[in-house]
Design a protein around this nucleic acid. Structure first.
Length: 801
RNA sequence: GGGGAUGUGGUGGAACUGGUAGACACGCUUGGCUUAGAACCAAGUGCCGCAAGGCGUGGGGGUUCGACUCCCUCCAUCCCUACCA
């Protein structure tokens, strides 16, 4: 007899067993390896639904691969440095370390309660010196390889708190705590030359088994463009301004130049001109995020400087524009209002000259498309492409420009003016920076005085000052540094002597990396760069860290992203406690495909729970009959067997190729629903018992990656204590899948007018004959002439009248 | 502003290669079981219509014998935009 399904007790005891047997601790062996990695979490306090979804996906695939006898490595750790710990420390009077520790403890318990099959022997946290000492060493090696330099760059400055603010800490131009109007300020920072790898980062995208949208985003972010650098001499001065343009064909349409407010010339002018100084000051009030600069109203001021057009010789005005970024290109834009939307708006606003130099079919300005040149002196009548080449040649001849390939990608600024991060291992001797020796690493983060809030290292005198001439670096690393190489360190996380070892060589690259779509550009690009840089300094092998990528969508509620500020969060813990981990996992996988956003729905959780109960009541208390496949099966019995094997084939494909767990589950539900009631009774025939046993085995095996606790429990009781469901992925029998009949679709003018069961392989003539006999079809065709007949074999026939 | 996605019943979603729109669930309706409820079981359920039939995949247009699927255009929502992670 079947007992009541009690997920709580089953899950707890099975999880205990897994722990005791160290089932998921991975070692090098002869099998094919599979490194399955989910993005490690920031330990914010509690698991949220996005985590649950992410980690369930990773666990389903890990378990599926294990069933197929792969040697699977699935580690987990903590992205433990970051801003929230400092904020929590200030708000709650706990040190960032203590707060982080507590959060990790709690979240680890939550992960365990979900039944995730992690190898906890390789757990790591980025805030430990055992982790970040290697990060400091990597920085030194990058420095030695010439990939690190110092440069001035802009930050959001809070003049009241006297701190640098992150973009998210600036709300409507004001500091979130002080409320003061922020200003952008230039300070010295450390940069890593990711642009040295721009070309390779772009080229090797092709080789990756990644979603196309992510590859496209990275491609556009790197932004390789072909164009020309053009020099404009400043009238009455020996100085010049250099611009980059991808459209040299529009050069005769240039009517002004716009320079960045941070451009040296702007700064120079501001010293003499009060209006310009005021304008620049105003520009500094826009926070340093690209979106904010782009969205701000386009403003400009005339410098009264003029430049000489290199080809026409005409004088053009120079303006300062708040939309021109100093970091991008040369910090100077050539304004072509006739052929650029932004320049058109700017020119209209400030009454600057607008000249058409390109002609297309659509002649309404601004014309962005390429076309035929007009009003361009010797180049009229040429196509944009031809003219571009000739104009570049002319500029080269005049020594006023050259052909150039440019990238949008900028070097990576890694300095952060904070406390809770990895200290940058540099000491200044009389102001000159030196990266410290390997033997002096790690530079440990200083402990905080009890009850004192975290302050940036720069304000910690004990830490900063070694002697009168020796001072420490005050900045910590961007936390993207921490997460750019953790995938590699996981493989050797328990090795204190070496950064990487033979395990690293065995497990890398990551075979499947799973995480949120919000990381499509920054984190994934930095990690790809790091891997290539680590390769070139001899620390890892291979060109890419992540062979295959699965990006999951957001978890929403009421159509909005779940977030504390919106107050629409749903705590996974209460659902795990109420329904059990298997139900929560099943719900997460069933309710939408991983790449789409998931809309949280309370009632659907009930549905998932109901399905598991159904399986429980079918299998619990029943025993496998150990019958041999020696029956002559009836039509019904064959139909069930066909369904079992067809479902297995579909589920295998859905898990492996499509990552479509929702349709896999739907197929398993269909199989369960299709089992005839009388097969389940004690009086059923042996051949019926055989078919039922087969269906039950398949259902448990197919569902086991998603709902591992209930499946392992039922499997042991049904099939045998000694057998292990975890390495038992079944094989489907292709010959059982063949069917003799199909449903013929009969269309008239593309609309379905009849359906009928028909033998496979039937030819078009016979089909036409049968189809035209169908009453409804006759009605539609009536006496009309059939102009055309389209026949798709074993599928449909369409009469066109 | 730029880049990337998404849009299908009351709800989540399915339709994988241009070929039956709505699989599988949730919800709802009716019936069974029950003193009642919960749970469970059975049947029904895109919209309009008594029906015949018509309409229907964000809006508009196009390609095709045939479009959720391809093209153009518009709208809405979400993600990223280099210091949130």
């Amino acid at each position: 007899m079947s007992s009541k399904y009690n997920p709580k007790s089953i899950e707890k005891s099975i999880q205990k067993k897994w722990d005791k047997e160290e089932r998921y601790v991975s070692k090098i062996d002869d099998r094919e390896k599979y490194y399955c990695l989910s993005m490690f979490p920031y330990p914010s306090g509690k698991l949220h639904m996005g985590h649950v979804r992410n980690y369930t996906i990773g666990d389903v695939i890990s378990r599926f691969k294990r069933m197929q006898n792969f040697n699977v490595f699935q580690p987990m750790g903590w992205d433990a440095f970051g801003l929230p710990a400092e904020n929590a420390a200030i708000a709650n009077d706990v040190s960032p370390m203590e707060w982080t520790d507590q959060n990790i403890k709690h979240m680890k318990g939550q992960l365990k309660s979900l039944g995730l099959s992690y190898d906890w022997s390789k757990e790591l946290r980025t805030c430990e010196p055992d982790y970040y000492k290697w990060e400091q060493l990597i920085f030194k090696k990058l420095y030695d390889a010439g990939l690190v330099y110092r440069k001035k760059s802009l930050v959001n400055w809070d003049p009241v708190d006297e701190t640098v603010l992150a973009n998210e800490q600036v709300i409507d131009g004001k500091g979130w705590r002080s409320g003061a109007q922020i200003e952008t300020k230039e300070i010295d920072q450390w940069f890593i030359r990711i642009t040295n790898y721009a070309e390779e980062l772009l080229d090797s995208l092709d080789k990756l088994d990644w979603p196309e949208n992510v590859k496209t985003m990275q491609k556009n972010w790197i932004g390789k463009s072909y164009g020309a650098e053009i020099k404009y001499n400043i009238h009455g001065s020996d100085k010049s301004l250099i611009t980059f343009s991808t459209r040299p064909d529009t050069i005769f349409g240039v009517s002004f130049l716009a320079i960045s407010p941070n451009h040296p010339i702007s700064i120079e002018l501001s010293n003499k001109n009060k209006d310009i100084a005021e304008f620049i000051e105003k520009c500094m009030e826009i926070k340093a995020a690209e979106a904010d600069i782009a969205k701000a109203e386009k403003l400009g001021i005339d410098t009264n400087l003029e430049v000489i057009h290199p080809l026409s010789g005409k004088k053009l005005p120079v303006w300062i524009g708040n939309f021109v970024l100093l970091d991008y290109g040369t910090g100077v834009v050539m304004g072509v209002p006739g052929h650029d939307t932004r320049d058109y708006e700017f020119a209209t606003k400030y009454n600057l000259n607008i000249k058409q130099v390109i002609e297309t079919e659509n002649n309404k300005l601004p014309i962005i498309d390429k076309g035929k040149l007009i009003n361009s002196e010797g180049f009229d009548g040429m196509s944009s492409n031809e003219a571009s080449k000739k104009i570049i040649n002319k500029l080269i001849e005049l020594e006023a420009g050259e052909e150039l390939v440019q990238f949008r990608l900028r070097d990576w600024g890694v300095s952060r003016q904070r406390y809770w991060g990895c200290p940058i291992p540099v000491i200044y001797e009389n102001g000159e920076p030196n990266v410290i020796d390997k033997n002096d690493m790690p530079v440990k983060l200083p402990k905080l005085e009890k009850d004192s809030p975290p302050i940036p290292l720069s304000q910690n005198k004990d830490f900063m000052t070694i002697s009168d001439s020796l001072k420490r670096e005050s900045d910590t690393f961007d936390t993207f540094m921490d997460s750019s190489w953790y995938y590699a360190r996981f493989t050797s996380a328990d090795n204190n002597k070496e950064i990487f070892d033979e395990n690293t060589r065995y497990w890398l690259p990551v075979d499947l990396y799973i995480g949120g779509i919000e990381h499509a550009i920054l984190h994934l690009l930095y990690s790809r760069f790091f891997h290539k840089a680590l390769r070139d300094i001899g620390l890892v092998e291979g060109d890419e860290p992540f062979k295959r990528l699965l990006t999951q969508g957001m978890v929403l509620k009421d159509g909005a992203k779940m977030s504390k500020s919106k107050g629409n969060t749903v705590d996974p813990q209460s659902y795990i406690e109420k329904y059990g981990a298997d139900t929560v996992r099943l719900y997460m996988m069933f309710t939408s495909p991983p790449e789409q956003s998931l809309e949280w729905s309370e009632s659907s959780v009930e549905g998932a729970s109901r399905f598991l109960k159904k399986i429980w009541h079918l299998v619990d208390g029943r025993k496998y009959n150990h019958l041999d496949d020696e029956f002559v099966f009836s039509k019904d019995e064959l139909a069930l067997r066909r369904k079992s094997h067809a479902t297995l084939k579909k589920v295998e494909n859905d898990y492996e190729v499509r990552f479509a767990f929702n349709t896999a589950i739907a197929a398993i539900m269909e199989l369960l629903n299709s089992i005839p009631e009388n097969y389940k009774s004690n009086e059923s025939s042996d051949s019926q018992k055989y078919c039922l046993d087969e269906a039950i085995l398949f259902i448990l095996q197919m569902l086991s990656p998603i709902a591992p606790h209930i499946c392992e429990y039922l499997w042991k009781n049904f099939y045998g204590e000694k057998s292990n469901i975890e390495t038992s992925w079944p094989k489907f029998n292709e010959s059982l899948l063949e069917v003799e009949e199909f449903e013929l679709i009969i269309q008239v003018n593309g609309k379905v007018r009849g359906k009928m069961n028909t033998n496979k392989g039937i030819d078009q003539k016979q089909i036409e004959k049968i189809a035209l006999e169908v009453d409804n079809v006759k009605n539609y065709i009536n006496s009309s002439e059939i102009k055309k007949t389209i026949h798709v074999k074993d599928k449909l026939i369409n009469f066109v009248i």
